[in-house]
């Protein structure tokens, strides 16, 4: 919402176990940015943004 380049999908992993396997989800929440950068657990907003920037560098 803050930037038109950014899309966000929430996936209820127990309904899509194949995606849980694909992205190695062993605990929630787990975030995957552009298929590469991963965040396990909840991160403070500013740290999350740093990971987003890391993914596009």
């Amino acid at each position: 919402m803050a930037n038109a380049n950014i899309r966000a999908e929430v996936i209820e992993v127990s309904e899509f176990p194949e995606l849980g396997d694909k992205y190695n989800v062993f605990g929630v929440p787990k975030s995957v940015i552009n298929e590469t950068v991963e965040i396990e657990g909840a991160a403070p907003e500013i740290m999350f943004v740093q990971k987003v920037l890391e993914a596009v560098q």
């Binding site: 999908e9 209820e12 127990s14 929630v28 552009n34 987003v52």
Partner: peptide, 18 residues
């Protein structure tokens, strides 16, 4: 301000459980 620096497409997937 940090988010404004994103100039290429980003998809964030967040996995959750009920």
């Amino acid at each position: 301000a940090e988010l404004a620096k994103v100039t290429s497409p980003v998809t964030i997937k967040v996995f959750v459980t009920p």
